[in-house]
Design a protein around this nucleic acid. Structure first.
Lengths: 111, 111
DNA sequence: ATCTTTTATCGTATATTTGCGATATAAGAT
DNA sequence: ATCTTATATCGCAAATATACGATAAAAGAT
């Protein structure tokens, strides 16, 4: 019974988890790296850089887009992708909020 | 054919993806939050705070421990858990490295 | 109009994750 | 020695994720 209990957690917990899930595959990390270096990039260029079939890359791009981490625009027959800076900044600060708490507690940790 | 192609990516990409995967569930985010607030915490306390069965919580704790994000020590009949601050800092800086690149490119983005 | 190029989507196979009850294990209490 | 308490692990069912080939869709080229 793998009933999704995910809804029983707070919205912030779910949002952060979804953000993490979007990055939870090396292919998607690699895609984000490429987009970071090139500022914007067409689907085919990404396919050439990854050891995956075109359909698989397209699927990963869709997941990143659905999660809001990248945006896409149509350029003739091509699709151009960019990082969604704002979403990234938002999740980064939420992550740092959690992380800052850890930092404060650091000296006390023992186990 | 879901052949794991994950090995074909760089070690850094895999490490970051694994770190993200460990956080890719609201229950595990919630556990990290509790540990951040309480500095250290026994398994049973975490079970009481989450809407999940004991065995499920234990499994999530194991995943966090395997990923290196938390440590555990035996305390009589109990198990005491703590954040692994060092691992957390390491992944955070790697994440920020990727993120810093995005920041630089920000003004140029367009699509 | 047809062909080519580029990307998205569908269908499908397999792998992994999630969740729980039942059971094992280990330590303290009686 | 037995009982209780606290966790971990096993076994299983259901849900998701991963990957690819085949095919659809959309735009530019001939």
């Amino acid at each position: 019974m793998a009933m999704h209990k995910k809804e029983e957690f707070t919205q912030k917990e779910q949002d952060l988890a979804n953000f993490a899930k979007a990055m939870a595959h090396p292919a998607r990390i690699a895609i984000l790296k490429v987009l970071a270096q090139r500022n914007e990039c067409v689907c085919g260029e990404i396919v050439d850089l990854l050891p995956l079939a075109q359909s698989t890359v397209s699927q990963h791009l869709k997941e990143l887009k659905t999660a809001g981490l990248i945006t896409g625009s149509i350029d003739g027959p091509r699709s151009c992708y960019c990082i969604n800076w704002k979403a990234f900044e938002k999740y980064n600060s939420e992550f740092n909020f959690l992380f800052a708490k850890l930092k404060v507690k650091n000296e006390k940790a023992s186990c």
